[in-house]
Design a binder for these strands. Sequence first.
DNA 1: TTCATGGTTCGATGATAAGCGAAGTATTGT
DNA 2: ACAATACTTCGCTTATCATCGAACCATGAA
Lengths: 226, 226
Amino acid sequence: MKEGPDIAFLGSLIGDPARANMLTALLSGKALTASELAGEAGITPQTASAHLSKMEAAGLLQLRKQGRHRYFALADDDVGSLLEAMMGFAAKKGHLRTRTGPKDPALRYSRVCYNHLAGDLGVRMMDSLLAKNFLTPETEGLGLTGDGKAFFEEFEIDFEPLEKLRRPLCKSCLDWSNRRSHLAGSLGNALLTRFYDLGWAKRVENSRIVAFNPKGEKAFLKTFPV
Amino acid sequence: MKEGPDIAFLGSLIGDPARANMLTALLSGKALTASELAGEAGITPQTASAHLSKMEAAGLLQLRKQGRHRYFALADDDVGSLLEAMMGFAAKKGHLRTRTGPKDPALRYSRVCYNHLAGDLGVRMMDSLLAKNFLTPETEGLGLTGDGKAFFEEFEIDFEPLEKLRRPLCKSCLDWSNRRSHLAGSLGNALLTRFYDLGWAKRVENSRIVAFNPKGEKAFLKTFPV
DNA sequence: TTCATGGTTCGATGATAAGCGAAGTATTGT
DNA sequence: ACAATACTTCGCTTATCATCGAACCATGAA
């Protein structure tokens, strides 16, 4: 209770890439589970757990236990404002990052975020779906259009089981690797498993990387043009 | 030019104790030389140099070369505001620091800051001088009272050479180890050398630590009571 | 010129902490 | 009861980066 400047502590807390990714993901205002945040940051749950408890102890995060889930959210508006301020400042100065984010650059290209596709490909898919008007931004989350439903049925997504779930069908999720949104929710989940089933891609063992094979990648790019 | 969240970079920049100390020292608005900042942070000039160039490259600091000195100041008001915001936030949350500041805990007790006494003892001296009305806070810096002048002459400080110098006589200097001010300026300098001459203390080789011997410390505490 | 001072660059060392695997604790579902 | 899921704790490895010593450059003083 006696010591150097506390802004150093605060800065170092935000200064870690993994933590910063989680924080920016939480800037949406939603509460996310520990595993979701781990996915968002591209790290394993254990590591995420350590980060999260640190941030909670520091008063940056607020924890709500619910069943076997632990939902984390920004502690209060002050945290959000501070993060916004820092982002604004960084943007103004046009900081070119040098430090490497989490591990693998392949993670930036395509990875799982919890249970759906994230990374460059995830963002591309989202952009494509929005551009073709298959999805529309709505007040709370995302909406599925008629054309969209047709498109996904053509793609052999089975909507029946999805609609029974309590989880929202479409949800947008901020991507740490390029600060844009990709598709989450049960639809995002279903699409990813469909990619697996089609043999386009598969999970790399012990990693969040989603490895597309050459023809899978080609097909993907054709299916979701920019 | 493609990467993770820039707030991580910014945070890590501010997150280092040494850099944070320099930044808070610069919050006074004054421009300080590289060596002064090194003293302020309790690190060697080489290390400070590395930190300073990093911060300048990141757009946090502004550099003005003048003769063989390099004066650093906060780049603009935005930097100041951001630091203020972070300090306010940290204060509100009452962060208790865990990370150790620069090296040695003895540094926190008494060390040289450029050419004058800093650390707990430096702050104590300043407090004492203010309480006894030997120094007074003025609009720009510190003022020496009549009583003060008498006191220092009693203490055998020779004012003649000091008044010829271009450097200000009294100057307050923010102390990183406890966020309070100590006495800088040529008077601060003169006092420190007087302590050496009196045999109260001496510099530890290759360190910024000012080691008081037992009787020197006792005399010091008596001379500058709280 | 020579010396001193303010700063920087380089190389090596060391401490801190991020990350993961493996094993453990809860809680929910069947 | 059993199994599966969500998350944590522990121990270890690895990388990063702050720090310092030593040597080097530049400016100013004698």
